[in-house]
Simulated assay, not measured.
Amino acid sequence: MSLVTLFVSSLDTRSERRFDLQLPISQLKGKLEPITGIPVGNQQLAIYNNDADIQPTRVLDDDQRPLGFYSPADFQVLKVVDTNPSATFTGQLTDLSGVEKFELSDEQYAVRQDSVLAYKQRHKVGRFAEKTEPTPPPTIGVNIPIGSRCEVESTEPGLHKRGTVRFVGPTDFGGTGGMWVGVEYDEPMGKNDGSVQGKRYFTCAPKFGVFVRPDKVMVGDFPVEDPFADEEM
């Protein structure tokens, strides 16, 4: 059996169907009647390449010919036109011109108590939800005395980033708030001179200052390292 897949299109319907190419046009119309609602005697059939085409490639005007006689190709459009729409319901199901529309002005809608708007207002949903101020992050006590010697955590093995604590407290940078520790390094391994974004928190030479979170700082007896201690004499 040789089959072809076509888009069946009428004023009220559109569907994808498969048909036997040996099917006579008279029998094809019988299959199309329950699909389109158009009686067999009122059907006018034509093949189009697509829905946008104005001119058909074939007009199926001989009921005795098989469908294959008109050489339809897969996914072409088989349009079914009702030649006597006044005797059927063709087009009436999709014609909304005679349907009375229910319309409300914005003012009328706003005073109704059975609307979605009223529901949202009663239950404080969406834009009617109560506005809450963001909760600031809790201030955590930090026992890092200013002036104490410290070592900052390093991801590089064997690198000791030692210095002196010069600042402990909140800052205007960082976004998430919380406490920061300002350290003056013993060597120029830092990022600033104790100021960030134009605000000064402590003073040191450029590239000697850094700000880190308290959990990255270890306070203790960390003497200044001699960079030449390991060199042979």
Rank of each mutant, 00 (worst) to 15 (best):
M1C: 00
V4L: 01
L6I: 08
V8I: 10
S10Y: 03
T13D: 06
R14G: 08
S15E: 13
E16R: 15
R17N: 10
R17I: 01
R18H: 01
L21C: 01
L21T: 04
L21Y: 00
P24D: 00
P24M: 00
Q27D: 15
L28F: 04
K29C: 13
G30Y: 01
G30N: 08
K31I: 00
L32G: 09
I35L: 15
G41S: 11
G41P: 01
Q44W: 06
N49A: 04
D51L: 15
D51G: 14
D51I: 07
D53F: 01
I54P: 00
P56E: 07
V59K: 10
D61H: 13
R65D: 10
G68S: 07
F69D: 13
Y70K: 06
Y70P: 04
F75E: 02
F75W: 04
F75C: 00
Q76P: 06
Q76R: 07
V77M: 09
V80L: 02
D82R: 12
D82T: 09
D82P: 05
T83A: 09
S86N: 08
G91E: 09
G98T: 11
E103Q: 15
E103T: 15
Q108W: 00
R112I: 01
A118W: 04
Y119S: 14
K120V: 02
K120D: 09
Q121G: 02
R122Y: 06
R122C: 06
R122L: 15
R122G: 05
V125N: 05
V125S: 03
V125M: 13
G126R: 05
R127Q: 15
E130I: 12
T132F: 11
T135R: 01
P136L: 08
P137Y: 04
I140S: 13
I140P: 08
V142P: 12
I144W: 04
G147N: 07
S154N: 04
E156S: 02
E156G: 00
E156V: 03
P157Q: 13
H160M: 01
G163R: 12
P170N: 07
P170M: 02
P170S: 08
P170I: 01
F173P: 14
G174N: 12
T176Y: 07
V183E: 13
V183A: 11
V183M: 09
E184A: 12
Y185C: 11
Y185V: 07
Y185P: 08
P188T: 10
G190V: 05
K191Q: 14
K191V: 10
D193Y: 05
S195Y: 08
V196Q: 13
G198Q: 05
R200I: 04
Y201D: 03
F202T: 01
T203Y: 06
T203K: 15
A205G: 03
P206V: 02
F208T: 12
V212T: 02
P214E: 01
V217C: 03
M218T: 14
M218K: 14
V219R: 05
P223G: 13
V224T: 13
E225N: 04
D230W: 06
E231A: 09
E232Y: 14
E232W: 11
